[in-house]
Design a protein around this nucleic acid. Sequence first.
DNA 1: TTAGAATCGTCAACAAATTCACAAATGAAT
DNA 2: ATTCATTTGTGAATTTGTTGACGATTCTAA
Lengths: 205, 205
Amino acid sequence: MAAQPVSDVVINRLPLYLRMLEFMQKEGKTITSSQELGERLALSSAQIRKDLSYFGEFGKQGTGYNIEYLQKMLRHILHVDRPWDVVVIGAGDLGRALVHYQGFAEQGFNLVAIFDNAPQKIGMTVGHLVVQNIADLPQVVHEKQIEMAVLAVPAQAAQGVANQLCELGIRAILNYAPITLTVPSNVRVYYIDPVVGLQSMAYYL
Amino acid sequence: MAAQPVSDVVINRLPLYLRMLEFMQKEGKTITSSQELGERLALSSAQIRKDLSYFGEFGKQGTGYNIEYLQKMLRHILHVDRPWDVVVIGAGDLGRALVHYQGFAEQGFNLVAIFDNAPQKIGMTVGHLVVQNIADLPQVVHEKQIEMAVLAVPAQAAQGVANQLCELGIRAILNYAPITLTVPSNVRVYYIDPVVGLQSMAYYL
DNA sequence: TTAGAATCGTCAACAAATTCACAAATGAAT
DNA sequence: ATTCATTTGTGAATTTGTTGACGATTCTAA
């Protein structure tokens, strides 16, 4: 599909295209153009055409893109045309809020287990899940062949848990802990830190 | 301070430097080097020196950087050497989890009010705050001269609330809603969407 | 006092990312 | 049937971002 690897910045924009296409579809639209997509995403139309061109030809000259078809192709490219099972580590306020969030399942990411190491949290019901002992993590990861994890533990525990996840074969970590993780090069980390966001924006105020 | 504007990618790395410096300080270290910072942040040492050089000369040849001093300078550059008041819009699971999170206040971001439009949520206590009617937002923003907001409402409500925030003079929005917002060019938006993160990483699996 | 190791700040070289601009194709309107 | 307004996909040009390399400085230790 991709002879020479497509760069990270391109891959990171594809989910935004997908999200906008879903939005347009809900509006009842069936076709769109790189220009319209660009305007609504605050990107240039050339950028969008170029990004898509790394993966194939999905549009029709003079007409634009069929929204449903382009969605389908993007899901295929991103490997989200199948469900993924995901484990959540940490049953604090954040971990629990994540389990209650419907947005993951809507996009095919099933949060199938939540773990914590605090005895008073183990056994607690969170949405449709029961908090499990972190000691049971290896078994669950192995049995369900989990490849993705959400890390929602305090900063001081994050690196230790990350090490464990990597050893268990997890290859993608969505990290909410405010710390840069050190992981093997075959493991991906996506960082979410709201404080970093506010600090970046404060610069411009 | 910055003759020709410093690019966004550079600004977005500064909080990571700051975060790492705080971490090192907790480890008891007092000085560091661009090389050490680079290794721990998975960046090149040249990158770090280059980034800092846009703002001045903070290191000492042969020695490196004084951690406390560099922290202080970075806080000054980012305008986080003062507290910022921030409002939270949306008192769902996410909004409530954010109010409970101590990480904002630790970095000088004070969540001073939380709003919702649902009658059954208004009046509810969340941490040290009481959920207020969204109708009271203009008054609070004006009285406390708020410039930053966290948007934690459902996707379908997000653009409407964002419009209101912009009209009220808010200049920085931390957006958790899974939608690309259209805002005036003088307003910054920092996007947090965990699903986008998982989708990006799924590409590599 | 001097030698040597470490490190910064910066200019130039290099690489990556974005934009430009246009041929080719499409569909609508006359 | 022909014209015209759109729109794609892409190679080239341009812009932006990263890395290399080195003079200058600092500290340590013999």
